[in-house]
Nucleic acid binder design. Structure first.
Length: 424
RNA sequence: GGAGGCGUCGCCUAGUCUGGUCUAUGGCGCCCGCCUGCUAAGCGGGUUUGGGGCUACAACCCCAUCGAGGGUUCAAAUCCCUCCGCCUCCGCCA
């Protein structure tokens, strides 16, 4: 949620941001209208309420005839107060409802436009030339089956489409990847958290996943709980409604968790293999820091992601995601996309968002304001350090003509092997 | 699953039966000042959060806030209802 005060004082800035996102700038005026109504009724309510309290005290002192007279007088006020409180609250709710629909203020420099309007910031490595290598690359599922690493058929038998088993070397490769990510985060000073993946409505909404992504979320009707599509939800909720002390620098957390996504709008897309599945593992970084440090911190998160991709010896590109493709809470988002040989294109492997104070305001994660009395929202950022999807890039890019797959040096000690060989 | 207890402004705590004197008590901690070779002690003051008015985003004034939400009442921490969380006991099950 953006700051209502920014919207009051500088509505043009908000309109411009909406425009860049391809969203409705008229929403700004609707919020302002509801805000005016709210403040008018609130002022009136407070004035009458003060009066009611004063008379109420007199009632307590008085007796007999004087008391009945006062009672008669204040009874009317009480009814008016109740009425105004209702309309004030109603206007506040309307303002809130509209305000929540406005996305975060896009940071200057973010390309305007939609999904295709991203800017490429960097490209690392070359897409592997299999013609030069003299063989036709197998896709990750062919390799997975050849190596005894992925079993889609049994996944479907047990749970349906977009479910899978990782088997033997596949499961071990995933574990090694996640472990390395956690190790590297630990060495960088992150505090590791074990997190709930089943959360209440408050946490889900606070992180912003019940707005645009509501269809993507698994909901357990009987218990009023939601399965999280990323540990960001739990990590964002961790310090909800708290006043943090950030004088010693940012709070950095990392968590590995199972992620659940309905993929409701993805019928027929990426149906083969484990590119797009209902359940996967992810190591996620999450940072609470001061607003003025957020952009620097965002660069750091990106650097940690790139370090991990480099260690996997993958070729990838870094993109500055366009405003229209950001999602509500993000003010800027960098994706790292790994090369997938059999698709001949780059696919998202990591994503890091700077949510500035947008998510924190809704969550109530604050700090003492260094410039004045009171508190102010902190900034939150998140980023991916590893996911199950990385197996696709690892298998396809490091495959050899005989169907075996070379293990990147960084994973070899964890896996205890330099090569994953086909089953006999 | 059954029975009971509890939830107060950082922590502990008074207040709830018997609604108005609660502008929520006291202690601890913390902050500022005084005193003082230094520290400690002592003394004085301050110390929830959110919002509105007015403004320099100060000071000041006001409203809300006693787990959350409703209700009763002129008036609710206090009475009634619903929900949430924690604890104890019993049962059941690993």
């Amino acid at each position: 949620m953006i700051d209502i005060r920014t919207l009051r004082e500088d509505p043009d800035r908000v309109r411009a941001s909406q425009q860049a996102r391809g969203e409705d700038p008229a929403l700004v005026d609707a919020v302002l209208e509801a805000d005016r109504r709210h403040r008018h009724d609130l002022t009136e309510f407070e004035r009458l309420r003060a009066e009611q309290k004063t008379v109420g005290k007199q009632v307590a002192q008085a007796s007999g005839e004087e008391k009945s007279a006062l009672l008669a007088e204040v009874k009317d006020t009480a009814a008016r107060v109740k009425e105004l409180d209702r309309s004030q609250a109603e206007a506040a709710q309307e303002r809130e409802r509209l305000l929540r629909r406005i996305g975060n203020l896009v940071i200057e420099g973010v390309p305007a436009g939609g999904e295709e309007d991203f800017r490429v910031l960097d490209t690392v490595g070359q897409p592997r030339d299999f013609t030069a290598d003299g063989f036709e690359p197998r896709d990750h599922l062919q390799l997975g089956e050849l190596l005894g690493a992925i079993d889609m058929a049994r996944g479907a038998k047990v749970s349906g489409s977009r479910f899978y088993f990782l088997t033997g070397p596949g499961a071990r490769l995933e574990t090694a990847l996640l472990t390395l990510a956690l190790q590297r985060a630990h060495e960088a000073g992150f505090v590791q958290l074990g997190v709930p993946t089943l959360v209440g409505e408050e946490a889900m909404a606070g992180a912003g996943f019940l707005d645009a992504h509501a269809d993507e979320v698994y909901r357990l009707e009987a218990d009023g709980l939601y399965l999280t599509g990323t540990s960001e939800v739990a990590l964002a909720g961790y310090h909800a409604d708290e006043i943090l002390d950030l004088t010693d620098g940012p709070r950095r957390y990392v968590a590995s968790s199972t992620c659940y996504r309905r993929e409701a709008g993805a019928h027929g897309k990426d149906t083969r293999g484990i590119i797009r599945v209902h359940q996967f593992q992810k190591v996620e970084m999450f940072v609470y820091c001061r607003l003025e440090d957020a952009e620097t911190e965002h660069e750091r998160l990106l650097a940690w992601e790139r370090g991990m991709l480099d260690a996997m010896e993958l070729s990838y590109r870094v993109i500055d995601v366009a405003a229209g493709d950001l999602g509500g809470p993000a003010a800027r988002k960098y994706d790292c996309e790994g090369w997938v040989p059999t698709q001949g294109r780059y696919r998202e492997l990591t994503s890091t968002s700077n949510c500035t104070d947008y998510q924190a305001r809704r969550l109530g994660a604050r700090e003492r304001d260094p410039n004045r009395s009171g508190t102010r929202p902190v900034a939150t950022l998140n980023g991916t350090l590893a996911t199950t999807r990385w197996l696709v890039a690892l298998l396809e890019n490091h495959q050899r003509a005989d169907g075996s797959v070379r293990v990147p040096a960084a994973l070899q000690p964890l896996l205890g092997a330099e090569v994953i060989a086909p089953r006999e």
